[in-house]
Amino acid sequence: MDSRTVTSITTGDGVRIAYRFDGEQDKPVLLLSNSIGTDLHMWDGQVPALTEHFRLLRYDARGHGGSDVPSGPYSLDRLGRDVVELLDALDLERVHVLGLSLGGIVAQWLGIHVPERVDRLVLSNTAAYLGPPQQWERPIAELLEAPDMRATADMFLHNWFPARMLQADSEVVEGFRRTLLATQREGVAGSWAAVRDYDLRRTATLICAPTLVIAGEHDTVTSAGHGKELAAAIPGARFTVLPTVHMANVERPAEFLDAVMAFLDERP
């Protein structure tokens, strides 16, 4: 398959999951897992540098991008099994995993439930718990009742990026806006339900893969405190804080890549 081709698998519950490879086949595979409201292009800025060392496997979570958008709430178990079924279909026994935000929550699930499939784990701008659950009910209901994604897109962008990027008419930010506006509300609401219902505070202690936790100093979605707590729960985890809001890979790409590469290239 051409590494630039987006193709798909179909999961056991009949949902099509879109994915693509970038990079040479003889390099170790690094799986990238995305934030809610984004697609696999959220990593475009990191692809050139990462493909010097890895074969990248990017995918669109259910409800996003080129993947199907089933209605109703999603569960973290289902989002995690989507990844396992993707790895099975591609005959990938073991991969590095880098996840940001919800992608970091899915990455935690993989480290807990299928540790034999995970080599090294990078958990960026994420948390083991984002409760209490009832705080998610109103946003989910309001989103499903809204006429479109405009208000939700504005909210996401203000949570993801610093004011200087929002005020600069950044083409990068506008790309994220276009993706948000093209995302179906059911996909975001279903994913919020997965966040509402998950709690990995106890089971994160079962993660045995070498782990790096990255937090954003100014992140109001998953705070530096969330990151510190997560790193403390995972045996032997490293913890680093970058001077960012939520999308650390976009706001500070050089520092983000330095942290990720130093960790993934580290010899046992």
Rank of each mutant, 00 (worst) to 15 (best):
R120F: 05
L121S: 03
L121A: 06
V122T: 05
A127S: 15
A127H: 03
L130F: 10
G131M: 01
G131Q: 00
G131L: 01
P132N: 07
P132R: 08
P132H: 09
P133S: 06
W136Y: 03
W136M: 06
W136P: 15
P139N: 00
P139D: 04
I140W: 00
I140T: 01
E142V: 10
L143E: 02
L144K: 00
L144H: 01
P147F: 02
M149F: 03
R150F: 13
A151W: 01
A153P: 04
M155S: 13
F156C: 08
L157G: 03
F161Y: 06
A163M: 13
R164N: 11
R164M: 12
M165W: 14
L166F: 12
D169P: 10
S170D: 05
E171N: 13
V172Q: 13
E174Q: 05
F176W: 05
F176Y: 04
R177M: 05
R178V: 13
T179S: 12
T179D: 09
L180V: 05
Q184N: 14
Q184H: 15
R185C: 09
E186S: 13
V188G: 01
W192M: 07
V195T: 01
R196C: 07
R196G: 01
Y198C: 08
D199G: 14
D199R: 10
D199I: 13
D199E: 13
R201L: 12
R201G: 11
R202A: 07
T203E: 14
T203W: 09
A204Y: 10
T205C: 12
T205A: 15
I207N: 11
C208R: 14
C208M: 12
A209K: 14
P210C: 08
P210L: 02
P210N: 09
T211Y: 00
